[in-house]
Structure formats: structure tokens, C-alpha cells
Simulated scan of single mutants.
Amino acid sequence: MDTFPDLGSLTDQELKDLIQQMTEEEIEVSYKRRILHGKIDILRAELVNRLRKRHEGGEDVISGSDVEKLTDILSGRVPGGEPN
């Protein structure tokens, strides 16, 4: 990670340039974030559709292993995670 410059040593123009650079970077990051959120929404919609079809077909939507994973998460026993 870049260190933040000593602001007192920058000229007015350097400060303006830095503001412009950071603003452009923020716009780019925001754009990428919106794209990622859109992709996540599409993936979630696909998963919901698949689960809905399974449910309509009479299959179990939630398995015993799903319940076990949820129990582990809620009790703080997540693999690779720190216990609460």
C-alpha cells in the first residue's frame, strides 16, 4: 500500500493533481464494484431458480449437511476461522 504524502510539502497544483488522481481512482473502483454486484446478483438469481426447480420437483432444497454447516457457523466452528 502506498504511503500518503506529506501534504505540507506539496504545492497547490500537486494537491489538485492528487485530488484528481484519487477521484479518478475512486470512479474506477466504484465502477468495478457495481459490475461485481451485478454478477453476484445474476449468480444468486440462478441459484434461486435452481433451488425453486428442485423444490417444485419434490427434491429436498436444504440437506442435512446444509443444516450442519449452518450450525457450525452459528456456533463459531467455521473451518479455518477463529473460534469466538
Rank of each mutant, 00 (worst) to 15 (best):
His37Gln: 11
Thr11Cys: 02
Glu28Ile: 03
Ser65Lys: 15
Val78Ile: 14
Gly38Arg: 04
Asp60Glu: 15
Thr3Gln: 11
Glu28Trp: 00
Pro83Met: 12
Glu24Lys: 05
Gly76Glu: 13
Gln13Pro: 01
Arg54Ser: 11
Asp60Ile: 10
Asp2Thr: 14
Gln21Glu: 05
Glu14Val: 09
Leu10Glu: 00
Glu24Gly: 02
Arg52Val: 09
Lys69Gln: 06
Thr3Met: 08
Arg34His: 08
Leu47Gln: 10
Lys53Ser: 10
Lys39Tyr: 12
Leu70Ser: 07
Glu14His: 03
Pro79Phe: 14
Arg52Phe: 06
Lys32Ile: 07
Ser30His: 13
Lys32Trp: 06
Glu26His: 07
Gly58Val: 14
Leu15Gly: 01
Asn84Met: 07
Gly80Arg: 03
Ser65Leu: 14
His55Thr: 09
Gln13Thr: 04
Val29His: 05
Asp12Tyr: 01
Asn84Cys: 04
Arg77His: 14
Asp17Thr: 00
Leu70Tyr: 11
Leu43Met: 13
Ile42Thr: 07
Gln13Leu: 00
Lys32His: 06
Ile27Gln: 07
Leu47His: 08
Asp6Arg: 02
Arg44Asn: 12
Glu24Ser: 07
Val61Phe: 08
Asp72Leu: 13
Arg77Ile: 11
Leu18Ala: 03
Ser65Cys: 07
Gly38Met: 09
Phe4Met: 08
Asp66Asn: 09
Arg50Val: 15
Arg77Thr: 10
Glu68Gln: 15
Arg44Phe: 12
Gly80Thr: 15
Glu28Lys: 01
Leu36Gly: 05
Gly57Asn: 06
Glu25Lys: 12
Gly8Cys: 06
Val67Pro: 06
Asp17Tyr: 00
Ser75Ile: 15
Ile19Arg: 00
Ala45Asn: 05
Ile35Cys: 15
Ser75Ala: 11
Leu10Tyr: 01
Asn84Gln: 12
Thr71Ile: 10
Val61Gln: 15
Leu47Ile: 13
Val67Lys: 10
Ser75Leu: 14
Gln20Cys: 04
Ile62Tyr: 06
Ser63Tyr: 08
Glu59Asp: 13
Pro79Cys: 09
Glu56Asn: 08
Leu7Gln: 02
Ile19Glu: 02
Glu24Ala: 07
Arg52Glu: 04
Met1Cys: 12
Ile73Ser: 11
Gln13Cys: 03
Ile35Gln: 14
Val29Tyr: 05
Val29Ala: 02
Asn49Gly: 10
Asp60Cys: 02
Gly57Cys: 05
Glu25His: 07
Lys32Val: 09
Arg50Ala: 13
Asp6Glu: 15
Glu28Gly: 00
Ser9Tyr: 03
Val78Gly: 03
Arg44Tyr: 06
Phe4Thr: 13
Glu56Pro: 04
Val78His: 06
Asp12Ile: 05
Gln13Ala: 02
Arg33Met: 11
Val61Ser: 14
Gly58Lys: 14
Asp60Pro: 02
Gly8Phe: 05
Thr23Met: 08
Leu74Met: 12
Pro5Ser: 04
Leu74Thr: 13
Ile62Ala: 05
Leu51Ala: 03
Gly81Met: 11
Ser63Glu: 07
His37Lys: 07
Ser65Ile: 15
Leu74Lys: 15
Glu28Asn: 03
Gln13Lys: 01
Gly76His: 11
Gly76Arg: 04
Ser65Glu: 15
Pro5His: 01
Glu28Val: 07
Gly80Asn: 08
Leu51Val: 12
Glu46Thr: 13
Glu56Trp: 03
Val67Gln: 05
Gly58Met: 14
Arg33Ala: 08
Glu46Met: 09
Ser63Arg: 14
Glu28Pro: 00
Ala45Pro: 04
Ile73Met: 14
Gly76Pro: 10
Glu24Tyr: 08
Glu82Leu: 10
Met22Phe: 09
